[in-house]
Simulated scan of single mutants.
Amino acid sequence: MAGHSKWHNIQHRKGRQDAKKGKIFTKVTKEIMLAARDGGGEPDKNPRLRAAIDSAKSANLPKDKIETAIKKGTGELAADQIEESVCEGYGPGGVAMLVQIATDNKNRTVAEVRHLLSKNGGSMGESGCVAWMFDHKGVLSFDKESYSEEQLLEVGLEAGAEDIIDDGEVWQVRCAPEDFTPLQQAYQEAGMEVSEAELTMVPQNTVGVDPETGRKVLKLYDALDDLDDVQNIYTNFELPQELLQELEN
């Protein structure tokens, strides 16, 4: 899964650059509102909200805007009605595409996603057609130069860690969503710095693509990501090394 993970890391760096343009602010604000609406406004009791706040801080969203988004989610402040949904389909080469949306007009946004899939060599599928290919996981990343696999295991096993993945420059510690907050707290109490923490959809297996197909998939991904109402896009493709090197450069 190295090609998939490395691409994922490149996307996160790109996301931090986009934050300077303010685009990511809309997405992280929506996620905070939705998380607070569904699970309450206390991060220690709401793993999704805790992850959303961490993402917002990484994107440099101001503290007052984070607090406002929480209050809008809990109903303390008035807010637009936002509906969550998932669009499932396939991209070029048959790769799975799981597109999470948050919108005030579901019909419009689903139509936009369907159009972009068709326009870029993909297709919309029925509900459940690709969701089974992914697992909902908490993922904590740690700098390899700072910690060993043994150190992470020693702290993590009792707190819910399921697996530790060698992900190039970082270790990825994976857990069930309900163990996300306790695991993060355990590492923090041990004085171990988490470089990134998220609740995400992890593909069970990846599908290798050739450079030409990879470029088409990336074009589709970027087109979907540019939609204001698209929150997250999960895929199972694995890019070839030559294409990853192009992206790095």
Rank of each mutant, 00 (worst) to 15 (best):
V194Q: 03
S58G: 12
E158P: 02
S127I: 14
K137W: 02
A2G: 05
E162N: 14
Y90G: 01
M124Y: 04
A56S: 10
V86S: 06
C175D: 04
D44S: 15
G128Q: 06
R16T: 11
E196A: 12
W7H: 14
A197D: 10
T200R: 12
V230F: 07
G168A: 05
C87W: 09
D44T: 14
A161M: 12
L224P: 04
E150V: 14
L183K: 03
D228E: 09
A131E: 08
E84R: 08
P62N: 02
Q184W: 12
E178C: 00
V207P: 00
I66A: 01
W171H: 11
T213D: 10
G168D: 03
D163C: 11
N120I: 03
H8Y: 09
D18P: 00
G40M: 07
P177V: 03
K21G: 14
I24K: 14
K119V: 09
S123V: 04
Y147W: 02
A78D: 13
R50G: 02
N205P: 01
G39A: 06
K219N: 13
Q81Y: 09
L98K: 08
I10S: 06
R37P: 01
R215Q: 09
W171F: 09
N232Y: 12
R13L: 14
K20D: 11
E246T: 07
I66D: 02
S118E: 15
E248S: 06
A186N: 06
L117C: 02
P177S: 01
A78F: 09
K30Q: 11
I53C: 02
D179H: 15
I101S: 03
L239M: 02
I32W: 03
G22R: 09
N236H: 08
K144R: 15
P240T: 11
P47M: 06
D210M: 07
L247W: 12
A96I: 02
S58H: 10
Q100G: 05
L140Q: 01
E193F: 01
G191N: 06
R16Q: 15
V230C: 04
G122Y: 03
Q17E: 14
K137N: 04
K57F: 08
S5Y: 10
G73T: 12
E31N: 13
A190L: 03
P203N: 04
